[in-house]
Write a protein that binds this DNA or RNA. Structure first.
Lengths: 334, 334
DNA sequence: CTGAAAGCGCTTACAG
DNA sequence: CTGAAAGCGCTTACAG
């Protein structure tokens, strides 16, 4: 039998109202009474029942997060780091994170997870949808909580959006390869249709254009973001194209591509210059260490959490797109 | 206004009791009535309010998980994978996972997190405690839910325990190095006091003993499980000891140590044979690819979830220690 | 300065 | 075969 507000009230000799007000600091209570209440709470090791609170307050102090992490061995570092950033901020506000991982690539699954969240009375939703067109959210999302999109720009639903500067990051990477004299540059990127993939392709094209290099379709491979497809994409591009540099636009694909280069004993950067995406520790232990574009993933999570907390606290300004700067981290691979 | 059981009852023209019984399949309801109820539920897009359910049922369908993931860049793959295994099983049972990450190394923090869980009315706790002595759980854990320990064997509190065969795995690794002719073998392992670290040291000693090799204290370095300390430990051991082989007993330390070997351009396996711990994709992209001891981390998570579900469903058999077999995955580093 | 009481949305003994 | 009503543990308008 865990003790509730009633037991505390009993022991302190006051009403449950008073106990509640002491806990929530929501009306004046004499110091003397307060002391008695606190004492009783300590004695009984009182912990509020959050189910009762949620029911009564019609909110759960919980934010739902949906991310697409495929069920491969290589969890996607990126979203894990984002989640940690979110956690950190929510914790400060006394909020919890309910994490749901869409490991299928199905919109139906995403809908199911949102319904579950609704059932849990979430106060806000942060989502990296597998789809660019999120108009289906209109029928699913309860209208009474804010939605914040991360990593992918939504279409068909309005909300804040936190995303890194993919065009800029990609441009930067390709430009730096060009600066080193490369003109035949391959690109491996995630499936198009997702904002980040689209934009990273744009950045690539932009850099070529600016330097008067013709864009060549067959030097670009798009694929799902798995270790295996990173491997296969590298294989495909290197067996058909005569490239001297390769840019890979996310961390999982980068890892897979490196495996191929490693297997084939391709010398980096002399045979092939490589720039990867996302700066995690493992990029330091390849031979040579990888040059990468770093996205501020932890910060992205923090930002998303801050924005959603503001919305919950009645920030009614119009929806904004927040762009986070990327950075070129130069190591030995180019 | 989200619709509740009341609205459904109204629309279907029955009592709320009947709706509840239809939902939970908990007493006979005529097919005709059922149909009306289902229709109303669909129309109103009814979703049970889980706060109300928790309050009424005195359970939350939620399991708490506490893991120690340090706040370094390199999240610990191991626990992430374990968590995914847990998720998978819980999901099948309609349970949720509340994840709490103890990123400090403080017991106080762990206590706080458990109190929070209590407040959330968790139905069970899965924990990889930072401490071997978990007797403090006696004052903190509400007596009405089961506790399952993972990765570390508890002292001072009884419960089921799921853990891999660390002695065997470690023995296997060291024996295979000895088989290749190595006699001067270094060991980098996590801080002692944690079951897995202790046991992996035991396995190391056991292999030496069996082969008549004297144990040499200074060839063993223990440290916290961060990338940096992996790096530092490798540096320390290699600058003071004349070893020909190195065994590192967890994935984060392995990554850090590899960074040092990489920086120093130490040739693997000719200058130094290396065996790491935990089989993740990144071990394939070092030069050469790493030989590792694989623990079944996903399975470990699944097992933990199954055990706790059984306990919740009144399995009253005595507490058991479940040992999961490890496996030597041979690649190029030894 | 403080208390009695209603009600959040469910489930379930009780009654018919 | 089904309904009326109590109660889970909170918060908060209302009353004094």
């Amino acid at each position: 039998m865990r003790s509730g507000i009633k037991q505390v009230a009993g022991m302190a000799g006051v009403s449950t109202s008073t106990v509640s007000h002491v806990i929530n600091n929501t009306r004046f209570v004499s110091e003397e009474t307060k002391a008695k209440v606190f004492y009783a709470m300590k004695m009984l090791d009182y912990r509020p029942n959050s189910a009762a609170q949620s029911l009564r307050n019609q909110r759960s102090n919980t934010i739902g997060l949906i991310v697409p992490i495929l069920p491969s061995d290589t969890s996607n570092f990126f979203f894990m780091t984002v989640a940690q950033g979110i956690q950190k901020v929510l914790h400060k506000h006394g909020y919890h994170l309910l994490l749901s991982n869409n490991s299928t690539e199905e919109i139906e699954e995403e809908k199911e997870q949102i319904k579950l969240f609704n059932s849990k009375q979430i106060d806000g939703l942060i989502i990296a949808s597998i789809s660019e067109d999120v108009s289906y959210l209109n029928e699913i999302v309860a209208t009474d909580y804010p939605v914040v999109f991360i990593d992918r720009k939504p279409k068909g639903y309005t909300g804040d959006c936190i995303i890194s500067d993919s065009v800029g990051g990609s441009f930067h990477a390709v430009q730096s390869l060009i600066d080193k004299g490369h003109r035949k540059i391959g690109l491996i990127t995630g499936n198009l249709g997702i904002t980040t993939s689209n934009e990273r392709l744009v950045g690539y094209k932009k850099a070529l254009l600016k330097n008067g290099i013709a864009y060549n379709d067959s030097r670009v491979v798009t694929s799902g973001s798995t270790f295996e497809s990173g491997f296969e994409s590298a294989k495909e591009i290197l067996s058909t194209q005569d490239i001297t540099a390769l840019f890979i636009t996310n961390n999982v694909l980068t890892m897979g591509a490196m495996k191929f280069l490693q297997d084939e004993k391709i010398k980096i950067p002399s045979d092939l210059a490589v720039i990867g995406f996302d700066d995690y520790d493992w990029t330091q232990i390849t031979t040579p260490p990888l040059t990468v574009i770093r996205q501020p993933s932890f910060d992205l999570g923090m930002k998303a959490a801050e924005v959603i907390m503001n919305r919950i606290n009645k920030d009614t300004s119009s929806y904004k797109e927040h762009r986070l700067k990327t950075e070129l981290v130069i190591r030995g691979s180019c």
